[in-house]
Design a protein around this nucleic acid. Structure first.
Length: 923
DNA sequence: TCTTGGCATTGATAA
DNA sequence: TATATCAATGCCAAGC
C-alpha cells in the first residue's frame, strides 16, 4: 500500500511563522525550513506521494507566507490542492475512505484529530514549555493512551476547549467520557468547580453545535457535493524533489530535531562514524563537540559538522575510544574542534577521571554544576549523586586533548617571539587555533559587556544567527540530564543537536566579525593560548597551611566575641551588628549620633561615614573593628577553609570572559582580593605557602596604568619623570604645588598620588574630593594644577572621550574593544559615567593586555625550558610563581625579561620582585 | 510556614 | 558623584 503525506499548509505554515523556531520576519527562510521539515517527515515515513492542501480562504496575516509556500511547492512540482474551509474535514475523510491508502496527516489543527482511524495517523510539530519543539505522532490505535479519551470524543473535547479552556476540557472528558455524561453530572461538577458549572449551564447549546461542526461529516449538508481531492499520477515524489525539499539551511533542520541521530549501540556508532569520516574527507571546517555528564560519568557526546549531527550514549569504554578515534580523524583531516568553554572541559575530564586536582567538596561540585546545567556553559551539566568512581574512558579523552596541546607546544618550543607589535605571535598560536576553537572567547571579544544569562550559546546564536533557541532550563526545567535522557530522549536529542550544530557553525560567523573588528589576532595570539596557561594555573593550585588558617579563624572569633560584648554593653542592648538597618537605628536614633550620608533604605553606615564619628564615640570605633574582624573571618578564614581541596591546595577559577576591560577575574575562591593593606588581614597571606623545596617569587609591575597613560598620551613631562625613574607621586607633587622635588611634604605627595589615581579612573572633582576628604572646589583646584603641569594629558583624555563618542567604542593599544553605549544615553549621569569609562577602559585594558602577554611568555618559557617551577596566580599587575629553589635564578631572569618586554612603551616597564616562603613574605 | 531567589549594603583587591 | 571585580550578610517578596 502506498503512503500519502497530506500537509495542512495553513496550520503548519502558521506554526512555522509564528510558533518559532523560525524568525517570523524571515518568511522565505521559514518556507525553506518548513519544506525541509516536511521532507524529513516524508523520508522518515517513506511517503510515496505528497500533497499540500490549503484551506480557503487563507487567513489574512499569512497570505504572503502562503504565497511563498505555494510558489515553492509549485517550483518543486508538488501537488497543491485547495480545499473549501467549511468542508475540508469532510473532503479529507472522503478521500481517505474511498482511496483506502495509508495516510499520514501533517497538521497542527486539532480538528484533524477527528480523522484518525485505521491506517490514518497525524503528525503535529509542537512547541511546549517542557519539551521545546518536538513532534507528536498520533494514530487511531494510540489515541486513548495518549489523550486519555476515545477518538469519537475528539469533536466534543475541541468544542469544550473553546468554552472551558483546553486543560479543563481534557480533564472533564477523561473523567466522564462524553458531553452527555458531563451534562448528567452537573451537580457533581458544581461542587468541584462552580465556575465551570456556570459556563456549562450558560453555553450548553453552543457546545453541542460546535461539536457537530468539527466532525468529518460537517460541511456535507451545506455543500451537498463533495469536491474530491484530485491528484494526478505525476505527483509522485522524485528523489530530486525530496533532495530539494530537505535542502533548507542546516541550522533550521537541526531545530526540528530530525537530523540528530541517537546512537546507543556500538554498531550504530560505526555507521555514524563512517558518515562523519566521509564528511571529514570533504574538506576543512569546524566540528562542534558538546559533552554532558551525570554524577561522575560522561553521559553523552554530541558531535556535529553542521551537516551531520549525532549523539553518542557513552555506555561503554569502547565507545569512548571510538569517539576519540573519530576526533583524531577529524583533526588529521584538518578540522578544527570547537568547544564552548574548553578550559572547563579539561577540568571536568580531569575530575571525572579522578585525576588533576581533586574534587573540592562534593557538595560544592553538585551545586556548582547545577547552575551550569541552567545553560551558562554549554558543555556540562553535572549533578550531585553517584560520586563513586566511574571512569567511562573520560581520562582517555582528557589525555587525548592534552596530548594535542602538548604536541603543538613541544614541536614549537623555541619558535615563539616578540613581534614589533609588542606581543606574542608565532606558529604556536596558529597551530593551537587550527586544532581548538573556544566559542566563549570569540563571543566575549565581540560582546565584552554581556554577562551571565545573556552569554550562553542560545543567546549568541540569537544575535549572530537570528535564531530563537530555548536553553536547557526553559526546555527541561530543573531536571537533570540523566532524568531528561530517560524521560524525553527525543527532545534531548533535538536540544543537544541544536547546541552542537551551533557550536560547529558559529565560529565562522564570529571569526569573520572579529577579523572585521581587528580583534582576531587578540583571540588567536592572546586569549586562546592563555586558556591553557590559566588551565594549568588552576590545576596547580596553591598550597595552604590549613592548621594555621584554622587558628587564625579562631583568633578572630575571640576578637569578634569580645567586641560584640563590648558593643552591646556600650549601646545598652543586643542587636545584629551586621545589619546596617538595625545598626542605623541604634546609632542615629537611639544614641542620636549625627547622621551623615543616606542610602536608598535609610542611614548609611559605610566605613567612611563611621570613621568620622569614631573619634568622638568609642562605640563606633568598636563597630568598625567588629566589621573588620567579621569580614576577615567570614570571607577569608572560613571562606578559604571551605575551598581547600584534598591536596591541601586551593584551586581558583580564572574567569577569562567576564570583565568589560579585558582584565581577568578570579572566583571560587577569589584570590585577587586577599587582604594586603592592613596588617591583621595581610597575615592571611602567610597561610599561602610554597611547597617543600620551593620558594615563591612574586613580581609586580610598578604603576603600570600610569605608565601606559604616559605612553599613550605622549606627555613629555610624565615620560621624562618615568625615564629618570623618579618617585612619580613626588614628582607630580613638585610640579603641581610648585615646590622643589626634595621639599615635597608627605601630605602633598599623598594628594598627588590620589590625583594620579583619579586621572586613571577618569577624574571628577567630586570623586577626588570624596577620596581625599576635601571640598569639591579644592579638588578641582588640584585637577587644574595637575593638568597645567601635564599639558598633553588633558588633550589626550579629551581625545579619548571624543573618539569614543564618535565611534561608540573604546580601544586598547592592542585593539581590544569596549562598546560604549553609555555615551548615547539620554541620562546625564549615564553619559558622565560613559566619559569616565572612555578614559579608563583603554588604560586599564591596555595594562590587562600587557600582563596577559607577560603571563603567556613566562608560562611558555617555564615549560619550554623544562623547569618544574609553576606559575600560580595573576593579580592584575602581579605574577606569583612557585619556584624550585635550584631554578630560582633562571626563573628570576625569565620573569624579569618577559615582563619587561611584554610591550614596548615610551617609558620603561618597571617591576618589583620579591621572594619568600609564603605570599606574605614574598609581597 | 518554610525555602529560595534577587536586591541592597558593605568591604576586600588592583596600590 | 572615581575604574574594575567577587563575596558575605541581611532583608523581603514569591512560591510551596
Amino acid at each position: 500500500m502506498s503512503t500519502w503525506l497530506i500537509v495542512d499548509a495553513n496550520s503548519i505554515g502558521k506554526a512555522a511563522s509564528q510558533g518559532l523556531p523560525f524568525d517570523p520576519s524571515e518568511e522565505e527562510r521559514s518556507v525553506t525550513a518548513m519544506l525541509s521539515f516536511v521532507g524529513s517527515q516524508a523520508v522518515k515515513y517513506q511517503a510515496t506521494d505528497l500533497v499540500f492542501v490549503f484551506t480557503d480562504p487563507v487567513e489574512e496575516a499569512y497570505t504572503h507566507y502562503n504565497e511563498l509556500l505555494l510558489a515553492a511547492t509549485k517550483k518543486a512540482g508538488i501537488a497543491v490542492t485547495l480545499l473549501e474551509k467549511d468542508n475540508c474535514l469532510h473532503q479529507l475523510s472522503h478521500f481517505i475512505h474511498t482511496e483506502s491508502k495509508k495516510v499520514i496527516l501533517l497538521s497542527n489543527d486539532r480538528t484533524w484529530q477527528t480523522l484518525l482511524q485505521g491506517e490514518v495517523s497525524l503528525i503535529s510539530p509542537e512547541i511546549s514549555k517542557e519539551e521545546g519543539s518536538h513532534v507528536v505522532h498520533l494514530d487511531g490505535a494510540r489515541i486513548k493512551e495518549t489523550l486519555g479519551y476515545e477518538a469519537e470524543s475528539i469533536p466534543e473535547v475541541i468544542a469544550l476547549s473553546g468554552i472551558l479552556g483546553e486543560a479543563m476540557a481534557k480533564s472533564l472528558m477523561k473523567t466522564y467520557g462524553s458531553i452527555s455524561t458531563i451534562l448528567l453530572s452537573m451537580e457533581e461538577i458544581r461542587g468541584k468547580s462552580p465556575r465551570t458549572w456556570q459556563r456549562l449551564l450558560e453555553q450548553k447549546g453552543e457546545i453541542l453545535a460546535k461539536a457537530l461542526k468539527v466532525t468529518p461529516e460537517a460541511g456535507k449538508v451545506d455543500s451537498g457535493v463533495i469536491s474530491p481531492l484530485s491528484i494526478d499520477e505525476d505527483t509522485k515524489i522524485s528523489p530530486e524533489q525530496l533532495a530539494a525539499l530537505t535542502e533548507g539551511t542546516k541550522a533550521e533542520k537541526k531545530l526540528l530535531g530530525e537530523d540528530a541521530i541517537y546512537v546507543d549501540s556500538l554498531q550504530m556508532f560505526h555507521e555514524a562514524a563512517k558518515r562523519f569520516e566521509a564528511t571529514f574527507e570533504k574538506g576543512t571546517g569546524f566540528l562542534g563537540i558538546t559533552i554532558e555528564t551525570t554524577g561522575s560519568a560522561l553521559e553523552t557526546v554530541c558531535l556535529s559538522t553542521g551537516e551531520d549531527t549525532a549523539l553518542f550514549d557513552l555506555g561503554s569504554k569502547d565507545l569512548m575510544k571510538q569517539v576519540k578515534k573519530l576526533l583524531t580523524a577529524a583533526v588529521e583531516s584538518g578540522w578544527t574542534l570547537s568547544f564552548w568553554n574548553l578550559k572547563h572541559l579539561l577540568h571536568q575530564c580531569g575530575k571525572i577521571a579522578g585525576r588533576g586536582y581533586d574534587v573540592l567538596l562534593s557538595e560544592q561540585i553538585g551545586d556548582g554544576m547545577k547552575q551550569e546545567a541552567d545553560g551558562q556553559l554549554c558543555l556540562f551539566a553535572m549533578e550531585k549523586e553517584d560520586e563513586k568512581e566511574n571512569d567511562r574512558g573520560a581520562g582517555e579523552l582528557l589525555d587525548w586533548l592534552c596530548s594535542l596541546e602538548e604536541d603543538v607546544f613541544s614541536s614549537e618550543k623555541d619558535s615563539f617571539s616578540v613581534t614589533d607589535r609588542g606581543y606574542f605571535t608565532g606558529e604556536y598560536s596558529k597551530k593551537l587555533s587550527r586544532i581548538f576553537c573556544d566559542v566563549s572567547l570569540l563571543a566575549y571579544l565581540l560582546m565584552p559587556l554581556s554577562t551571565g544569562k545573556d552569554f550562553d550559546i542560545e543567546k549568541v546564536a540569537g544575535v549572530y544567527r537570528k535564531l530563537e533557541l530555548k536553553d536547557y532550563k526553559s526546555r527541561f526545567g530543573k531536571k537533570s540530564v540523566r532524568e531528561v535522557l530517560e524521560e524525553k530522549r527525543e527532545a534531548y536529542v533535538s536540544y543537544a543537536g541544536v547546541r552542537t550544530a551551533m557550536l560547529s557553525e558559529l565560529p565562522g560567523d564570529l571569526m569573520s566579525e572579529l577579523k572585521e573588528d581587528g580583534q582576531y589576532s587578540l583571540y588567536e595570539e592572546m586569549e586562546l593560548p592563555l586558556l591553557f596557561t590559566l588551565y594549568s594555573m588552576e590545576k596547580e593550585g596553591i598550597a595552604m597551611d590549613t592548621a594555621a588558617l584554622r587558628r587564625y579563624g579562631e583568633e578572630l572569633s575571640e576578637g569578634i566575641l569580645k567586641l560584640q560584648e563590648q558593643i552591646y554593653q556600650e549601646v545598652g542592648e543586643e542587636f545584629n551588628i551586621n545589619s546596617p538597618k538595625q545598626l542605623g537605628t541604634i546609632l542615629f536614633e537611639k544614641l542620636g549620633l549625627p547622621a551623615g550620608k543616606k542610602t536608598k533604605s535609610g542611614y548609611s553606615t559605610a566605613a567612611d561615614v563611621l570613621e568620622k564619628l569614631a573619634e568622638d564615640y568609642p562605640v563606633v570605633e568598636h563597630i568598625l573593628q567588629y566589621r573588620t574582624f567579621g569580614k576577615l573571618k567570614s570571607t577569608y578564614a572560613d571562606g578559604l577553609l571551605d575551598c581547600i581541596a584534598s591536596d591541601q591546595r586551593v584551586h581558583t577559577t580564572f574567569q577569562q570572559a567576564v570583565t568589560a576591560t579585558g582584565r581577568l577575574s578570579s572566583s571560587d575562591p577569589n584570590l585577587q582580593n586577599i587582604p594586603v593593606r592592613i596588617e591583621l588581614g595581610k597575615r592571611i597571606r602567610s597561610v599561602f605557602h610554597a611547597k617543600e623545596g620551593y620558594v615563591f617569587l612574586d613580581a609586580d609591575y610598578s604603576q603600570i596604568e600610569l605608565r601606559v597613560l604616559a605612553h599613550l598620551s605622549g606627555d613629555q613631562q610624565l615620560i621624562e619623570a618615568y625615564r629618570k625613574d623618579r618617585d612619580i607621586h613626588r614628582a607630580t607633587a613638585a610640579l603641581v604645588f610648585h615646590v622643589p622635588f626634595e621639599e615635597v611634604t608627605p601630605q602633598q605627595r599623598r594628594a598627588a598620588k590620589a590625583v594620579n589615581f583619579g586621572i586613571v579612573y577618569g577624574i571628577s572633582s567630586f570623586g577626588l574630593g570624596q577620596n581625599l576628604d576635601i571640598s569639591r572646589q579644592q579638588a578641582q583646584q588640584y585637577i587644574d594644577d595637575y593638568f597645567r603641569a601635564y599639558t598633553r594629558l588633558q588633550e589626550y583624555l579629551d581625545e579619548l572621550v571624543a573618539a569614543a563618542k564618535r565611534d561608540h567604542v573604546a580601544l586598547t593599544m592592542f585593539g581590544r574593544r569596549r562598546p560604549m553605549p553609555e555615551l548615547s544615553s539620554s541620562i546625564y549621569m549615564q553619559r558622565q559615567f560613559g566619559e569616565r569609562v572612555a578614559m579608563n577602559a583603554p588604560i586599564q585594558g591596555t595594562a590587562a593586555d600587557i600582563i596577559k602577554i607577560a603571563m603567556l611568555h613566562v608560562w611558555q618559557r617555564l615549560r619550554g625550558e623544562g623547569l618544574s617551577s609553576k606559575l600560580l596566580l595573576q593579580v592584575h599587575d602581579e605574577l606569583l610563581i612557585e619556584t624550585k629553589i635550584e631554578e630560582k635564578e633562571q626563573v628570576k631572569a625569565i620573569l624579569d625579561e618577559e615582563m619587561h618586554r611584554a610591550a614596548h612603551l615610551l617609558v620603561p616597564l618597571a617591576i618589583d620582585m620579591e621572594e619568600g616562603n609564603s605570599w606574605y613574605d614574598a609581597h
